[in-house]
Computed example of a mutant assay.
Amino acid sequence: MVVHDELYEIGIRQRRHMFGPAGAEDQVEHTSDLNDKLQDFVTRTCFGDIWQRAGLSITDRSKVTFAMLVAAGHTHEMRVHVRGALENGVSPVELREIALHSVLYCGIPAANEGLRALDEVFAEKNVGPLLDGEAAR
């Protein structure tokens, strides 16, 4: 049973902004006894509470989230959060720089997975291959 309180409403609104209806209402409406507690936690605590705190902007939270997902090697979630980061105003160049920076602290395999996630989502979103002309130099 979903309780529609303030945290739920804020959380579902944030999820909808970042991930569209498929990442918001569709996820919540298609819960089962197996995953209902997880979806409730994600909506209320993650997006209704933590993502709303004043200490970081939503854009900065998206950058930090992508960096942590690269570090942890969570490839599926990287792709999900790249889409959300673009919706939250993180530029493709910033996302690329986060993935490249991860080489220093997470290693080449992690950075490579981050770049693969970016490549896939950028292709899906029609982000051109020329981000800042750096490759042509």
Rank of each mutant, 00 (worst) to 15 (best):
A54K: 15
D60N: 07
G48V: 00
V90A: 10
H76S: 09
D36N: 03
A22G: 08
R44S: 06
P21W: 02
T65H: 05
W51Y: 12
R83L: 05
K37E: 15
D49S: 01
E113I: 13
C106N: 13
V103M: 15
V103Y: 06
H30C: 05
Y8M: 04
G89E: 15
S102Y: 05
A85P: 01
L115H: 10
Y8D: 02
G55C: 13
K63P: 02
E25T: 03
V90T: 06
E29K: 02
Q14Y: 00
A110T: 06
Y8G: 04
Q52G: 03
F41S: 00
R44T: 06
N35E: 09
D60C: 00
L7K: 12
R13E: 14
V80M: 13
L104S: 11
Q39D: 12
E87P: 02
D40E: 15
L7H: 07
E97K: 00
L115W: 11
C106M: 12
F66R: 04
S32G: 08
A54T: 13
P21R: 01
A54D: 12
G73E: 06
R96G: 10
M68K: 10
G55F: 14
A22R: 09
K63V: 07
A123R: 03
V121Q: 03
L118W: 07
I50P: 03
V42H: 03
G23V: 02
Q27P: 01
T59L: 06
A110C: 09
I108D: 10
A111D: 01
G20Y: 05
R16D: 11
T45R: 00
F47T: 08
G23Q: 04
P21I: 10
D36A: 04
T75M: 09
D60T: 12
S102E: 03
A110V: 03
S102D: 05
L100Y: 05
F122C: 02
L104K: 00
I10P: 01
E77A: 11
T65N: 13
G11K: 00
V80G: 01
S57L: 05
V93K: 05
L95M: 14
D119P: 00
R13G: 14
L7S: 12
P109C: 07
C46M: 11
L34W: 14
H76V: 13
T75W: 07
E9H: 01
E94F: 10
E87D: 15
L86T: 07
A85E: 12
E97I: 04
V28D: 04
L69A: 07
F41W: 15
D60Q: 14
S32Y: 10
H17N: 06
G107Q: 12
Q39W: 09
V64A: 15
P92E: 05
Q52N: 03
L118S: 10
A71V: 14
G107T: 06
F66S: 01
G48C: 03
L104D: 13
E113V: 11
L95C: 00
I12A: 04
T65D: 13
V42E: 13
F41T: 07
R53L: 10
Y105P: 06
T75Q: 08
W51N: 02
R96D: 15
R13Q: 05
D36M: 08
S32R: 02
H17T: 04
D36P: 03
Y105I: 15
V90M: 09
F19T: 03
R83Q: 13
I50L: 14
V93L: 15
T75I: 14
A111F: 08
A123L: 01
V90C: 14
